[in-house]
Amino acid sequence: MRLILHPGYDNPAHGLWCHDVRPGEEMLENLSRQELVEYAVTFVASCAERAINIASWAAALDGRPYDAAIYVEAVETLWRHDPRDVHVFSARMVQLEEMHEMTVADELTGPPAYGFHSILVLHSGLRAVTELTPENVEDCSLAARNAASYLERLIRSEDCLLSAEELSQHEDIKDLLRGASADRLRDRARQAGRNRMNLFRSRSHLA
């Protein structure tokens, strides 16, 4: 167990006891071996699936339903497209880099600011497939943890979203190395994403 102190809080009483179950470097490196490329793609797709609801919802709320659809389609690319067709993933990366959230970045305000970190998860997932290395898989893992941490701080949640993301990643890797199907992981990631979205909407003044 470890005490998570949310950045910006100066009172240790605001810390939350959460399980420290982040995936280890060795586990992530195992996914990046050439013979396990499909497992690595499933792992980053699962990270993106849990995060993307926030981004697509925020884009739609900002009056950009077409952008919201692009985010959903990019996640679908991670799940369904042959990872050997690197150009498809590269094209999706370029498309994301031209989106409002990515071009404005730190200057975002309103609903788009809520979705920015989720889009970074998707972008890093696409990069990991385009160039499969342990470092790029770890970048996606970290982006997903950062997105959960950001949301947790934003809504002052006591639900330990960061810890939940770490646990999801740990379980995904463990199950993949045991031969679990991508469909099983996607179902679990979708449910986690819906739970996160529902929590956000229940706590956000934008809902």
Rank of each mutant, 00 (worst) to 15 (best):
R2P: 14
P7I: 05
N11V: 11
G15L: 12
W17H: 07
C18I: 09
H19R: 05
H19P: 09
P23W: 12
G24Q: 04
N30I: 13
N30D: 14
R33K: 13
Q34C: 14
E35A: 10
V37W: 10
E38A: 15
Y39E: 14
F43Y: 15
F43W: 09
F43T: 02
V44E: 08
S46A: 15
C47A: 12
C47R: 02
N53F: 14
A55D: 05
L61H: 01
P65E: 00
D67K: 00
D67P: 00
A68L: 01
I70L: 11
I70D: 05
V72E: 11
V75W: 00
L78R: 00
R80L: 15
H87G: 08
F89I: 01
S90H: 06
M93A: 04
V94G: 05
L96I: 12
L96S: 08
H100V: 07
H100G: 03
H100E: 10
E101Q: 04
E101D: 03
T103F: 12
V104C: 02
E107V: 02
L120Y: 02
L122A: 06
L126C: 11
L126Q: 03
A128C: 10
T130H: 12
E131T: 04
T133W: 08
T133H: 03
E135N: 04
E138A: 10
E138C: 05
D139T: 09
C140H: 01
A144Q: 01
R145K: 02
R145T: 08
A148G: 09
A148F: 12
E152D: 14
E152K: 01
I155W: 10
D159Y: 08
C160G: 07
C160L: 11
L161T: 07
E166P: 06
L167Q: 11
L167K: 08
D175V: 09
R178Q: 15
G179W: 14
A189T: 03
A192N: 06
N195T: 06
N198Q: 04
F200Y: 10
R201D: 08
R203H: 12
H205R: 01
L206A: 03
A207R: 01
